[in-house]
Amino acid sequence: SEEELIEKAEKLRKEFEFIWNGIRFIIRENADEIRRFEELLKE
């Protein structure tokens, strides 16, 4: 039914948001290391 689809979509959206926030947190935490690594690659 349509309601089930909406519920599934909402659940997926929440899971995606949770994963995305996790990725963003990891990137933020490691931003300095990532930048340093990029500098090494440029040399």
Rank of each mutant, 00 (worst) to 15 (best):
L12I: 06
G22F: 15
E17T: 09
I26G: 00
F37I: 03
E2H: 08
L40I: 07
L5P: 05
E7N: 07
I6S: 04
R24Q: 11
E2P: 09
R28E: 12
K42I: 10
I19Q: 00
R13C: 13
N21M: 10
E43A: 11
I34D: 01
K42P: 02
E38S: 10
E4L: 05
D32M: 04
I6C: 15
L41F: 12
E38Y: 14
E4W: 14
L12D: 02
A31D: 02
E15W: 15
R28Q: 10
E17G: 03
R28G: 12
E29W: 14
I23W: 02
R24S: 13
E39F: 09
L41T: 02
R13M: 09
S1E: 06
E39G: 02
I34A: 02
L41I: 09
E4I: 11
R36H: 04
L12G: 03
K42C: 15
I6N: 05
E4M: 08
E29F: 14
L41N: 01
G22R: 10
K42D: 03
I26Y: 01
E3K: 07
K8L: 14
R13D: 05
E7F: 05
E17K: 05
F18S: 03
L41E: 02
L41Q: 01
L12F: 06
E39V: 04
E10H: 12
F37N: 00
K42M: 09
E43S: 09
I6D: 04
E17W: 14
L40F: 05
E33I: 15
E4D: 08
E33M: 15
E2F: 14
I23K: 00
K8F: 14
E10P: 02
N21R: 08
I26S: 00
E2K: 09
G22W: 15
F25A: 14
L5R: 03
R35C: 15
F25K: 04
E15L: 15
K8V: 09
F18Y: 08
I23H: 03
A9D: 04
K11N: 04
N21H: 03
E2Q: 05
I27K: 00
E17M: 10
A31P: 02
E39R: 02
E10Y: 04
N30R: 13
K8M: 13
E3F: 11
R13Y: 12
I6M: 09
R36Y: 10
E29M: 14
S1C: 14
W20D: 00
R36C: 13
F18G: 01
A9V: 10
N30V: 15
D32W: 09
I6H: 13
E4G: 10
A9I: 13
N30H: 11
E10I: 08
S1T: 08
K11Q: 12
R35H: 06
E43P: 04
L12N: 02
A9H: 08
N21L: 14
R24V: 14
E10R: 01
D32Y: 08
N21D: 07
E4K: 06
F18V: 07
R28P: 06
I23P: 00
R35Y: 06
F16R: 01
E3Y: 08
I34P: 01
E38A: 13
E7G: 06
G22I: 15
F16A: 01
E10M: 05
F37R: 01
D32I: 05
I26F: 12
E10F: 02
A9P: 08
R24Y: 12
K11P: 07
K14C: 14
F37E: 02
A9Y: 12
E15H: 14
G22H: 12
W20P: 00
E7Y: 05
E10S: 03
E15F: 15
E39N: 04
R36P: 03
E39L: 04
L41C: 15
K11M: 13
N21P: 04
I6Q: 07
K8S: 11
K11R: 02
E17V: 07
E29I: 14
L12R: 01
I34C: 13
A9G: 05
F25N: 06
E39Q: 10
R13K: 09
I23D: 04
I6R: 10
F37W: 07
A9N: 06
K11V: 10
E43T: 06
K11I: 11
I34F: 03
I27L: 12
W20F: 03
F25V: 05
L12M: 05
K14R: 08
F25Y: 12
L5K: 04
E29S: 08
I27V: 03
R28T: 08
N21V: 13
E29V: 13
N21T: 06
I27T: 01
K42Y: 13
L12W: 11
E33H: 12
F18T: 02
R36W: 12
A9T: 11
A9L: 14
E38D: 06
R28M: 12
E29D: 09
D32K: 11
F25W: 11
F18P: 00
F25M: 06
S1Q: 09
A31Q: 04
R35N: 02
E3G: 05
E7S: 11
K42G: 09
R24K: 08
W20T: 00
K11T: 12
K42A: 09
W20L: 13
E7T: 08
L41M: 03
K14W: 13
E4P: 05
R36K: 04
N30T: 10
L40T: 02
E15V: 15
E43I: 13
R24I: 14
E39T: 10
R28S: 09
I6E: 08
I19V: 07
I23V: 04
R35P: 02
R28V: 06
E29A: 13
E17L: 13
E15G: 08
F25R: 09
E43K: 07
I34R: 02
F37S: 00
F18I: 08
L41D: 00
I19M: 03
L5Q: 05
K8P: 08
I6Y: 05
I6T: 10
L12Q: 02
W20G: 00
K14I: 11
R28D: 12
E29L: 14
L12A: 04
E29P: 08
D32S: 10
I19P: 00
E15Q: 08
E3V: 09
L12Y: 06
E7A: 05
I26A: 01
G22D: 04
F25D: 13
I26L: 07
I23R: 00
